[in-house]
Design a protein around this nucleic acid. Structure first.
Lengths: 232, 232
DNA sequence: TAGTGGTCTAGACCACGGG
DNA sequence: CCGTGGTCTAGACCACTAG
């Protein structure tokens, strides 16, 4: 593990141990340099990380402060959110799983791939369905998937099992009325509101390997997306 | 303007001039160091910026590549998105503007502020209403607003006129059926789907100054949100 | 005006990818 | 193995905040 990641972890631990609240001040950088015995640049790198995760913010000439957005009961739009308090009681039901030729529209997105896997699942928060997922995985990059794997967290398998690292993603949000079929799976009524999130996931070398369509149940879906227009 | 920002601009210009496409390779870092006559760290800082804006991605041991997501006709979730192609024909209609005591719920969010401004506006894309906005501004931080200002881009005024810099924001997304009043303003039917985005905007020193509720017209609202799980 | 974060440098060495 | 990006250092100097 890299030094700046270790430092970031220690800072998070520091916040937790000292029960720091929103707006509370952290030690100054020079102190951290001594404390953690690394260079200033490394501290800055760690702070950048925490900044991006919405955990801290810096004010020039003043100090570094704790930022803890209220994201209770929220689904983070990005999974890298610092305090991922959304590790609830999540279950998955597989509706469809098959190896297949990718539809044209998907082939266009997962460039150069013709074969792949189709996965349709419903995610439950407790016993409430909160999102319907339809995903296509490129076989070129994900050579093997099984019904068993698909019952669990797929991305964990991709990372642990295949050494496949997610690098970045494009997300397109759309609001629309859901179809009868979607309504059935989400235990709603046809025509009810739905948030459709179309995702394209890219692996380490920039090749797209997964293209998904998520339709969120509007009743159980509060989503959190923090921003930080900063760097370093 | 800082060096890394200038470098970032130059790289964007380079991409445009050479008509680089998704996946095309950029010059290597060492070349950029010579080309722009700055240190490697500064180049990295510029690249971090571009990375965060979804313009490039880096592959260790291989190179730096252009990333240009298809965001045609999309509203960026964050306004700092690199290629903001959404500078269309946008008009604003002010529905309500007044100086007022902030509601309790808003006071809780804009901590310590009791007085402020309330602004209700509809944003039109061409002649189609695409979002209904209800905003409260803390008078402590935004001491003056006028009906005239509110007819234009408020954040531009805050930046140029008041020297107020937006630092970061919390966003909460919710899908729901819109009310009769909202339907009237968005030229829709009551009960139609709507995306509600609750924003809290924080200024440079971490104090929240604006709390907004946006309800998007589901017919004209495709939203883009890129991610990049990286730093430096 | 002191203190704190922000920018920048020059250079050493590491880690990964691809030939 | 070479080339490329990634990490880290030590230190100089700038810019902003607050007392």
């Amino acid at each position: 593990m890299k030094k700046y990641q270790i430092v970031a972890k220690k800072i998070i631990a520091y916040i937790a141990e000292n029960h720091l609240q929103q707006g509370d001040k952290l030690p100054k950088i020079t102190e951290m340099v001594e404390q953690f015995d690394v260079s200033k640049a490394t501290i800055l790198q760690a702070l950048t990380l925490l900044n991006q995760q919405g955990i801290i913010y810096k004010v020039q000439g003043s100090g570094i402060f704790v930022r803890m957005p209220a994201m209770k009961d929220c689904i983070p739009l990005y999974s890298n959110s610092g305090f991922s308090s959304y590790i609830n009681d999540i279950k998955v039901k597989v509706i469809e799983f098959k190896e297949t030729t990718l539809p044209d529209s998907v082939q266009k997105i997962l460039k150069g791939s013709t074969e792949g896997y189709k996965v349709v699942r419903v995610h439950y928060n407790g016993d409430k369905p909160y999102v319907l997922e339809e995903s296509y995985y490129s076989k070129k990059i994900v050579p093997f998937l099984s019904e068993e794997i698909v019952k669990g967290p797929i991305f964990e398998y991709l990372r642990e099992g295949l050494g496949l690292q997610l690098r970045f993603s494009d997300k397109y949000l759309e609001i629309r009325k859901i179809t009868a079929e979607e309504a059935r799976l989400l235990e709603l009524n046809p025509g009810d509101p739905g948030l459709q999130v179309s995702d394209i996931y890219y692996c380490d070398n920039g090749i797209p390997f997964d293209c998904s369509k998520l339709v969120y149940n509007y009743q159980n879906s509060k989503i959190y997306a923090e921003s930080s227009d900063e760097l370093i």
